[in-house]
Nucleic acid binder design. Sequence first.
DNA 1: TTGTATGCGTTATCAA
DNA 2: TTGATAACGCATACAA
Lengths: 350, 350
Amino acid sequence: MIITMRDIAQKAGVSTATVSRVLNKNPTSIPISKHTREKVEQIASEMGYSPNVFAKTLRTKKSMLIGVVVWDLTDLFFSEILRGIDNTLHLSGYKMLLNSAEGSSEREFFCMEKMRDLHVDGMIILGGDKSSSTQNLIALNIDPSTSVLVGTTADISGKSVSSITVDNFTGGYIGLQYLGSKQKKQIYYLAGKNKTTDMIDRLEGVIKAVKDLGLEDHFEKIDIGPGEQAGYQATKQLIETTEVPAAIFAVSDLTALGAIRAIKESSYTVPEDIAVLGFDDLALSSYLHPSLSTIRQPRYDMGVMASVMLLDAFASKKNHTGDEKDTNEHWNYPTKQRRLKPKLIVREST
Amino acid sequence: MIITMRDIAQKAGVSTATVSRVLNKNPTSIPISKHTREKVEQIASEMGYSPNVFAKTLRTKKSMLIGVVVWDLTDLFFSEILRGIDNTLHLSGYKMLLNSAEGSSEREFFCMEKMRDLHVDGMIILGGDKSSSTQNLIALNIDPSTSVLVGTTADISGKSVSSITVDNFTGGYIGLQYLGSKQKKQIYYLAGKNKTTDMIDRLEGVIKAVKDLGLEDHFEKIDIGPGEQAGYQATKQLIETTEVPAAIFAVSDLTALGAIRAIKESSYTVPEDIAVLGFDDLALSSYLHPSLSTIRQPRYDMGVMASVMLLDAFASKKNHTGDEKDTNEHWNYPTKQRRLKPKLIVREST
DNA sequence: TTGTATGCGTTATCAA
DNA sequence: TTGATAACGCATACAA
């Protein structure tokens, strides 16, 4: 048996309107007698009432649901961000609706469509392909003013969507600088070949550092796919041609893991012959032997900030009357692009 | 502007009932003229109609939402299971509502409550604490006939809730058997001290193997918390007292990682001095050097099966008229307990 | 084959 | 301070 407001109203001898008012704690500060309030609250909890979210949403147009589309759920990089999101939303009464795009743009489209149809109040997109996420946003006619991108940036109609990114330029720069400043040796950058702005910026930082340090003749970029395997394969090939000492700057910790595995299988050692620097600072990076030097991304904080940004957007939307012309060509909403600083973590692998 | 059925009906010159019938593809096999059908479909897609899930749910009492509560989202063990769930539900039009209990029973309660209030059609609980999950289920009065437990089992009022587990007894047994049958050496079992049935069964399998092999004098159980750190600490202490060759059977791959790290820091080697066997077969276990021997749990399949089980429960529920007495003390629904076989994976660490 | 009318549980407007 | 009542968008029993 499911308890509705009507049940409570009947038992309390009041109207459903009164029940609604009591249970919603003065929505428009309409006064209610203490007596009635207490009676209704009493009965509601006795009967184990829980509000029907669907009726409520139908009426109010607010679902209290936040859609989170993560590019790849099994990617360790995202889990910590998700924790940040979940915890933050949890605090403010929003529920997280999570789906994974499983590394496919089509699937991402599908997820976003589902979210939209569920009338989520806002959406957080974690690290999808830059162009696909943007296109999906447009194609699905999703309100960009209540969307936040994490790990990538995008413009729609010349206006930037809100986003949280790490300053990847700096990350790339300090990583290469660290590797290049110790001694003259060949440096290989195992670059990710996907097109998130993260990856692009990171590469630019690397290139800039190469130039600043005058290392053009000692630097080589190798494009590889994501994951440990790709790092392993690339490094295996590399080892046959390279001279030691050398250094590898991997686009991710996972890639670095693969590199280390390949090196260990050869006659070389880490870090004496070949130093390896990762990017991300996954939890497991400190568990390894040798433990992995890396560029840390503040992942939990990224999740928190993305959520806060969304919550802010809701708040600032409330203040608008909404009667400005809705041309759908030119929104007028405040967006923010937060860019967090990465940090060099030196461990045993360099 | 949000498009409703009324908009379509108006434009097509038909009633909303007709629109509803067309858009729901013959729910009760009421015939509709080809002409009307095509016109409505045409207009609906032109106007970019998407149904209002909340109105629909309010009417039909089916949310098409599945609540998934995972004990700890950052635990690598779960991510693969989640993939299985997500992919399966995705196929059948259900949406996954995911929340993490962050390793706390109170938080798990909260998540389950939210799910219930959202009127999810079913719930999947991933690897919570045995007793807490069960208690929460009861306390929240959640229908156990549409709930599936993964990684643990539970009884409510003497009836087993549906569950997917790995045969942990066998897992523990074959693991210890493998370690103990090669040579006489001291074997340490780093046991998890939480109370999931998984852990309990696993320990029993281990103990049984110890007895069968007559290894009572060469076996020791050490209770530790979860995670890499715990494995590291325990092993570090162990090393001071143990004689080589020895073997460590870790309750999880992560624990095994910690053990290996501790051993590497000592003067001993893996596997020559101390062999290490894990449990789970996380993706990263094969990335390590030495790569980790382990007991594989078919995680993706577990997710798939949990989903299928739930879908089956929905189907079998439909066939009931629902007019059997609803005493809430004695349900009559079919439940299943699937128990999957784990598998020994031998790599370099043993 | 199609339309009318009702209700799902809630909130909000208007009266009282 | 409280109560009727309409409306949110949809599905369905019943009528036509």
